[in-house]
């Protein structure tokens, strides 16, 4: 049995004529912090959306915890229009198209590149609501307050998460009234409330200054240890990626162009050409 928690095999996502992700194969090892980098529009967020059930990949397989969770192959009109590779390979496989909540229930939680907090809710309620998925109450016991112990557990754990993120003092404020950096933290707290094994972070340091970025990196390592997590993140801040990640995958135009340790990636000519070179210009 391998140590990979998440495995993508030839995942392709084609929108109309645009191949956003092209035969992407990669592995995220249990307990590691892994980065996915690439220029703007490379298909990183799309790859995340395939993993989390937002999109059904046009082709390819995704397994989590040694279990096949997503499987797709071209069907109908797409059979003719398909531009990616391996078009025949998975035709005999049954299509598995889970909804995002089914994926989250398996233990994959995420944050969003464009923050998506629930805007009418307080900071506290944002995290508490994410606890709903693992709530033991049914609608009857919840409405008539017949399982107070469960409600108390959810509230206590929510408070602990907020304290861990230094958000406790804002608990009654509207989530959207927080400064940007704290909103990102709240999104992480909310994702953690679903008790994930794998946490997907989409540009967690976007809009942060170098100091904040550094703090965020340390914080990610901290929660990774504390919650026994595996972390897979999209990030543009190279210093963060180089310093805190165990492994880096680089994609460009939907294709994987490199994968390896930070040191290997730093010296990879293709990466420098496609990505780092551009960034340094």
């Amino acid at each position: 049995m391998s140590e990979a928690l998440l495995r993508l095999e030839n995942v392709t996502m084609q929108f109309g004529g645009v191949v956003a992700v092209d035969s992407l194969s990669l592995e995220v090892e249990t307990g590691k912090i892994v980065a996915l980098i690439g220029p703007n529009g490379a298909g990183k967020t799309t790859a995340f959306n395939c993993i989390t059930g937002v999109y059904q990949p046009t082709n390819g397989l995704i397994s989590f915890d040694d279990k096949l969770v997503v499987s797709g192959h071209p069907t109908g009109k797409m059979k003719r229009d398909y531009k990616g590779s391996n078009s025949e390979k998975y035709l005999d496989k049954e299509i598995i198209d889970p909804t995002p909540d089914e994926i989250t229930r398996l233990g994959i939680a995420r944050t969003f590149q464009n923050i998506r907090l629930w805007k009418s809710m307080s900071v506290f309620d944002n995290v508490l609501t994410a606890k709903h998925m693992r709530n033991r109450q049914n609608v009857f016991t919840a409405t008539f307050r017949l399982d107070r112990a469960e409600e108390k557990r959810m509230r206590q754990e929510t408070m602990e998460l907020l304290e861990e993120q230094n958000l406790a003092q804002y608990k009654d404020d509207l989530a959207v009234s927080l400064p940007y950096g704290l909103q990102r933290r709240l999104e992480i707290a909310r994702a953690l409330a679903t008790d994930p094994k794998l946490l997907l972070l989409d540009e967690p340091a976007a809009g942060m200054n170098p100091q904040e970025t550094l703090e965020l990196g340390e914080f990610i390592v901290e929660i990774q240890k504390k919650h026994n997590l595996t972390i897979f993140m999209i990030e543009h801040h190279m210093d963060l990626v180089m310093r805190f990640c165990d492994k880096i995958y680089v994609i460009d135009f939907g294709k994987l162009i490199a994968g390896g340790t930070p040191a290997e990636i730093k010296n990879n000519q293709r990466v420098i050409d496609a990505y780092l070179g551009v960034a340094e210009e």
Partner: peptide
């Protein structure tokens, strides 16, 4: 209740609600 909060989450942002495990 917890279910009412889930309803409000769907109202505020369906995509986020789904991603947080709300069917």
């Amino acid at each position: 209740s917890s279910f009412g909060r889930a309803f409000k989450a769907i109202r505020d942002d369906e995509i986020a609600a789904e991603a947080m495990g709300i069917n």
